[in-house]
């Protein structure tokens, strides 16, 4: 029972971390029609910048540096590179961000080498927030979840209750009209791109410390984030939230299932016990990495537009 609660909590917090990244991706897509392949690279850059700055500014300083640094990198990418290919259409933008994600990964290797770096949660933050039965639940994990929730609340309030938010929402729906009303839409877009990048950077600065910081982290997480936005429906914040949480919980819960595929199929009588021990000796817990993709295929079959996607496919 306790382990189930822990697994659910872990899943929830991993889901919230996913949401920190997928929300930026989906916001940028909704506004500019750009699918940013390099978005997960911002997550990676956040972790590495924070890691590098920790030595100088301390842990919290590193997190602030990582967030702001990545926001700045995002701003530069938008203003100097993406803007340049916009006239060639969305596919060219896609290729550009793809090239950037490739280049960022290699650039990180130039500075920090091809292996994981040691970017740990500082000793002072390693204490239990509470305990569930015999399990001490780490405070930092709770902090990641709380940060994600606070961030979501901030964005929601910004978009819903402020004048800037109103202009941004209008710019998403009809950029030409907003431009005609005298607002600087291009500046709004750049700003939102920087905010989205900064969010991914923050997620990386915190997630990198808790999980691992290595050059593959962008690719590994990027794929899951793509699954999240396909399942949730690209352009929809609420869809991204639901999909993030579902996938986070799913991936973390299945780890605790203690049987193999072979056993399962052998019990039903589809395969022999011999095959079960050799060819199909794959623990179901191992499917954690595969489940999000199966979920995506399922969603594509029954609801191609995603959970909260537009009806017009």
């Amino acid at each position: 029972m306790d382990t189930i609660v822990v697994a659910l909590l872990n899943g929830l917090i991993y889901g919230l971390l996913l949401f920190m990244i997928s929300s930026g991706l989906t916001l940028i897509f909704g506004m500019m029609g750009i699918l940013n392949f390099a978005h997960a690279s911002f997550y990676m850059l956040g972790a590495y910048l924070a890691f590098a700055a920790t030595r100088i500014f301390g842990f919290w300083g590193g997190i602030v540096f990582g967030t702001l640094g990545v926001a700045l990198i995002g701003l530069l990418c938008e203003r100097t590179l993406l803007r340049h290919v916009r006239r060639h259409g969305h596919v060219q933008e896609l290729l550009l961000t793809f090239g950037l994600s490739f280049a960022f990964e290699e650039l990180v290797k130039v500075f920090f080498g091809p292996y994981a770096v040691s970017y740990p949660v500082p000793e002072s933050l390693r204490f239990a927030a509470f305990s569930i039965g015999a399990v001490q639940y780490p405070f930092f994990r709770v902090l990641i979840g709380a940060t994600a929730i606070a961030m979501f609340a901030a964005i929601f309030c910004l978009l819903r209750f402020t004048r800037i938010g109103l202009v941004v929402r209008a710019a998403v729906l009809n950029p030409d009209m907003v431009r005609a009303l005298g607002y600087n839409v291009s500046a709004i877009f750049s700003g939102m791109f920087a905010v989205g990048a900064g969010l991914a950077g923050l997620a990386g600065a915190m997630g990198g410390a808790y999980y691992t910081t290595n050059p593959n982290m962008a690719t590994e997480l990027g794929v899951i984030v793509f699954v999240v936005v396909v399942v949730g429906g690209l352009g929809s914040l609420s869809g991204a939230l639901i999909a993030s949480l579902v996938i986070g919980v799913l991936v973390n819960a299945v780890v605790y299932v203690d049987t193999t595929f072979g056993d399962l199929l052998a019990k039903v009588g589809i395969v022999s016990a011999e095959t079960a021990r050799t060819l199909l000796n794959v623990p179901i817990a191992n499917t954690a990495g595969v489940l999000p993709f199966l979920l995506m295929l399922l969603v594509l079959m029954i609801r191609p537009q995603g959970i909260a996607g537009d009806e017009r496919v």
Partner: peptide, 16 residues
């Protein structure tokens, strides 16, 4: 799906 959705799905299938 087409366009960017197609791109994301191909990535996900490859990762699967």
């Amino acid at each position: 799906r087409s366009g960017v959705y197609f791109a994301m799905i191909t990535v996900a299938i490859a990762e699967l």
